[in-house]
């Protein structure tokens, strides 16, 4: 009995540093880089959301990201004041206390009035844009892609002079998920704009797992929808999948500097489940008229 107890203690002592060492942020942390985290489908208030949130907070200590992108389904089910506390404010309190802002998009489980909630930084808008350093973010409401929003997206992308253009919304344009799969309808409308105006990276949630899709028409696609829910073994690995993780919950860390995009995906167990470095895709060719105009004195 005593020997068994000793074994457990020894095992625990061996595992603690192993677990702590497991969550090593390996991103380069270069000067002047834009650093952020990505979470999706987080708002359950479950123990698992809290456990993953702890890992996110721990990651922030090593890699001080300055903001967080939320991929929607921010508050599942009831959305009374106490739900905002339980499903958002409490799990991410250390980050909120450290003045790390969250930029939310709406999911199909979200009340559109979340756009008035100050801590989601939507300023009452269902779709909006913001810029951090060399990166401009285009936040879509993919639950209701009507003409007004398409026009807005077209205008905003066309006016953008940012080096990096990143779009995000709840629904993935490309996905290997068995439950939902690619949102082909949405893709038909927004992908042409992404290509035309040179969007570099697209994030989404909705599928409760992590997936990195092979670049599609020169654009990188990530799904990060497992910060509060998990759909185990749901990825049907096929021609789209570059990497996927559906064994446990996860979040993403991203660092962008010059023409490099570094990313690391960390699970609830603190394990790195995907990481890498991507080059910024080349800008789309400018139409000839634009070149002529630019050349005119």
């Amino acid at each position: 009995m005593v020997r068994r107890g000793v074994r457990i203690v020894v095992l625990a002592l061996l595992l603690v540093p192993a677990a702590a060492a497991a969550q090593q942020v390996t991103l380069p942390q270069l000067d002047g880089a834009v650093r952020f985290a990505v979470i999706g489908d987080s708002g359950t208030g479950s123990d698992r959301q809290y456990e993953l949130a702890e890992k996110l907070v721990a990651a922030h200590a090593q890699f001080p990201f300055t903001f967080v992108l939320m991929m929607g389904d921010n508050i599942y089910g009831s959305d009374k004041a106490k739900d905002f506390q339980k499903k958002f404010e409490t799990p991410y309190k250390p980050l909120l206390d450290a003045s790390v802002p969250f930029y939310a998009t709406l999911g199909n489980h979200d009340d559109p009035n979340q756009r008035f909630y100050k801590l989601f930084n939507m300023d009452g808008r269902r779709y909006y844009t913001f810029t951090k350093g060399d990166v401009q973010f285009f936040v879509m409401d993919s639950t209701y892609m009507d003409r007004a929003q398409l026009t807005w997206l077209d205008q905003q992308l066309s006016a953008s002079r940012a080096r990096w253009k990143i779009a995000y919304g709840h629904h993935p344009l490309y996905s290997s998920g068995a439950r939902h799969g690619s949102e082909v309808d949405l893709r038909e409308l927004v992908e042409p704009l992404f290509i035309k105006y040179g969007v570099d990276v697209v994030f989404a949630g909705h599928e409760h797992f992590y997936e990195r899709v092979k670049p599609q028409k020169g654009i990188y696609y990530f799904t990060s929808g497992a910060a509060g829910k998990l759909r185990e073994n749901n990825i049907r690995r096929g021609p789209l999948t570059a990497a996927g993780f559906d064994d446990d919950m996860s979040f993403m860390l991203v660092e962008i500097t010059d023409d490099k995009f570094y990313f690391q995906v960390i699970s609830r167990a603190g394990k790195t489940v995907d990481s890498g470095e991507l080059d910024r895709p080349p800008d789309p060719e400018k139409p000839k008229e634009a070149e002529t105009t630019a050349a005119t004195p």
Binding site: N108, H109, D111, T143, M145, D146, H171, D185, L186
Partner: peptide
Amino acid sequence: PSDFPLATIPPRLLNNLYPLPDGLE
């Protein structure tokens, strides 16, 4: 009902329906 998701209207279909003023969907 607050526990019902706001299921997405397929965007292609949505764009074929008569446009609504802000605040209605």
